[in-house]
Design a protein around this nucleic acid. Structure first.
Lengths: 353, 353
DNA sequence: TTGAAAGCGATACCAG
DNA sequence: CTGGTATCGCTTTCAA
């Protein structure tokens, strides 16, 4: 049985209260008592029972993180960033993966709430904010990550998705693409806003968009790359086929790449391709993949910081942190011929192998 | 203020004990009372306070999972598998990533122990089992995952690493490689045992191994792919350079691939390459990467199942689950010319794009 | 079939 | 400076 406060108190002939105070630097303790207690705590390697502490203080020092897919590197990196910040402050992270399933996500959230986590960070797979009610009801502070809801007052950390879409699309246009297609997810803000950025860039260059050029699919059980693969297969049936593809994330772009190559077409010569998220292995793919970087670890860190602020009651008005997307140019989108006559300078682009 | 047992009891004019019993199907409750209680619980959306419950029962329904790197897809998938099994049984998973740093790992473990998790699953970055003492001291059941320690009695779930090494190496040999190099990690059982399998396969085919052909490096802060990249750069300085490379995991192989291509050599013609772990994006890499599949989700599920058994006291003698490695052949290791004279049939190989 | 009483291990409050 | 006492929300035990 683990050492308790009482064991230490008894050993030293003081009260549990005294020991408890020493433990939390709660002043008003004589130097001498302090040292004796500290010594004994060390000797016995005392570890406070956090469940007991949680019961009386109402703080579990547990923070929940709900993501749509932990296997997607993006969310793993976010988790890493968040975990890093929280650990230093004595908090632990409970990570739940909803597998892009809203029903499962609700269950996960409910589990977390009943654990009385101190705050919740959610990258939701829901398409409407209704589910947030249960969190509000539980009165647990929360913030949205990566995906937000229009008209929702909650704190949010993510990137400027419109700009990301604009950046990527403009880049394709500057590389001579005319018939650019967009492949996105369904009903998530990242997909919707990146699409908006796409439309804006196309309009700015007076390029028409035909309906068939826009694909929005849910992932369901399919991994994102399979979704991309299938979507591209469909696009390839159009004549003429698109000459540029912007995917709202990198796993989708990975599947798209496979489909293009299988069709015997060249990237970027026949079809230029760009993703979003800049996963680590992007440069190692069949054709090094251009992408839009979202600094995912930083995103996790910021989310964690806000969660801590929320807990501390430091947040009065909902806070929104929008990280700047950065264009990362690799082979998949660069057409040497087209480059000779750029429409405009790329916006803070980074060229990477 | 969340709803408490007492609120429900007061509402219904029964005692908290009665409500508590209903909640846990603790027989000896009249049908009628049962239904009334259940109804009210639903209405108020009552969620038991797990901290309070943990305090009295000594069970937190929390299971810790410590991995060296959550961003490595392998461990994310393991976490997914484990989480899936545990969730169904009312347990939550607290995931800690040690970033391959033994000191950080100790801290993480200590945090988890002080949270009184019910069991701990560890894929350790330590090179000796000394750190296990703190877990033993805390009397918390645990099991090792992926990486084990020789002479250690604990439960273990992983793959047969020797066989994985043999499978991969034999495959390279059958594809005509003669000067095969091994690139592994330092002091982890997976690296050591896969190396052993490598040696065994080489010996079986009377192929000599020169010391320079074996590289074992820690990752430290570098991502695994950078480790692989650097190791390969060094190997390429040898004359003649190796004609086959077996990497103990896929991220390392990814870096190796980059280095080979940068050097202007062809895969598999000049150098054949195979990894281990079979990450999802293996087939999408610059050259589709052959690998050894370890069925990581199943590994996570098995680990979770054993953790539950340990908690239930069902495990008498330490249990070891070794999953069968499966060879996945892709382009990076297939040399058409060599295939005409295979040394032996590949062992249950799967050919995949 | 029901419930009163006694904790679980810690903290908060207030008296000495 | 120190410590007694009540309390957090729930389960356990045992008597009614």
């Amino acid at each position: 049985m683990p050492v308790r406060l009482k064991d230490i108190a008894d050993d030293l002939g003081v009260s549990v209260v005294t020991v408890s105070k020493v433990l939390r630097n709660h002043g008003d303790i004589s130097r001498e008592t302090r040292d004796r207690v500290l010594k004994r705590i060390k000797e016995l390697n005392y570890q406070p029972n956090l469940a007991a502490r949680a019961l009386v203080t109402g703080r579990t020092h547990l923070i929940g993180l709900v993501v749509p897919d932990l296997v997607h590197q993006f969310f793993a990196q976010v988790a890493k960033g968040a975990s890093h910040v929280l650990r230093k402050r004595g908090y632990s992270l409970i990570i739940s993966s909803s597998e892009e399933d809203p029903a499962l996500e609700n269950e996960e959230i409910s589990q977390l709430l009943s654990r009385r986590i101190d705050a919740l960070i959610v990258a939701s797979s829901h398409s409407t904010p209704a589910f947030l009610q249960q969190i509000e009801d539980a009165q647990i502070p929360y913030l949205l990550l990566d995906r937000k809801f229009s008209g929702c007052e909650a704190c949010f950390v993510g990137i400027d998705d419109r700009k990301a879409g604009e950046l990527a699309t403009t880049h394709l246009i500057e590389n001579g693409c005319q018939r650019i297609a967009y492949i996105g997810g369904k009903n998530v803000s990242t997909a919707i806003n990146r699409l908006e950025g796409f439309r804006k860039a196309m309009a700015a260059h007076r390029l028409p968009i035909h309906e068939g050029q826009i694909t929005c699919r849910s992932h369901f059980d399919d991994a994102a790359d399979i979704t991309g693969y299938k979507a591209m297969k469909t696009l390839l049936r159009r004549k003429p086929h698109p000459d540029g593809i912007f995917c709202y994330n990198d796993p989708v772009a990975t599947g798209v790449m496979q489909a293009i190559i299988e069709a015997g077409l060249r990237i970027p010569e026949d079809i230029a391709l760009i993703g979003c998220g800049n996963v680590r292995y992007a440069s190692a793919l069949r054709v090094p993949l251009s992408s839009v970087d979202q600094d995912c670890e930083l995103m996790g860190e910021q989310a964690a910081a806000i969660a801590l602020d929320l807990i501390a009651g430091k947040v009065v008005t909902p806070k929104t942190v929008l990280l700047e997307p950065r264009l990362i140019v690799r082979k998949s989108s660069v057409r040497p011929a087209a480059n000779s006559n750029p429409v405009s300078k790329p916006n803070r682009a980074v060229v990477s192998k």
